[in-house]
Amino acid sequence: MKCDKIQPMLSAFIDNALSARDTWEVDRHLAECHECQRSLNEMKRTIKLLHDISAFEVSADFDAKLQTKLSELQPKPDRLMWIKGLSRMFRPRLLPAWGAASILGIVLVMMVFFNQKPIRTVNMNTFPATEANFVQQAKVQNMAFSAVNPLEDVSIANLSAHPSGQLGSNANASE
């Protein structure tokens, strides 16, 4: 392997976080590359310095201040389990999966939708008792009915609401 492949692995190499094969590759490369050896040593020293950096400590009155604030508060009750479940389901790491699933779902819905259209056309041709035919029939009934009862408001919509053809039979009865 070349230096540009080895260098990014040095950090994980120091932490023993490489696979056995990568560790072997880095070891082998380091044995013959002084530049990478120097980088490794510098990185090790940087980590040591970071580890030894002086730590900050809270002030003496930290506890007293915190106690004053806490004394006015009560822990919140446990959230409902389903909220926990939902928040875990939609955590950022899973969002790409949810995105892919949504796209797949939309594609499936569209496929089903477009597949249904030709079936509907066939149905209309096969079975004449559809909306268009019924409206046509209702128009005829309306004309007949309004001729008998001119004062009654019998619109096509009202006739359409009685697909059983009761109005038609009424019209026949009054005739």
Partner: peptide, 10 residues
């Protein structure tokens, strides 16, 4: 610590 205290039950 206040936030931890408030949410310790969760």
């Amino acid at each position: 610590f206040i936030r931890a205290y408030m949410n310790i039950k969760s």
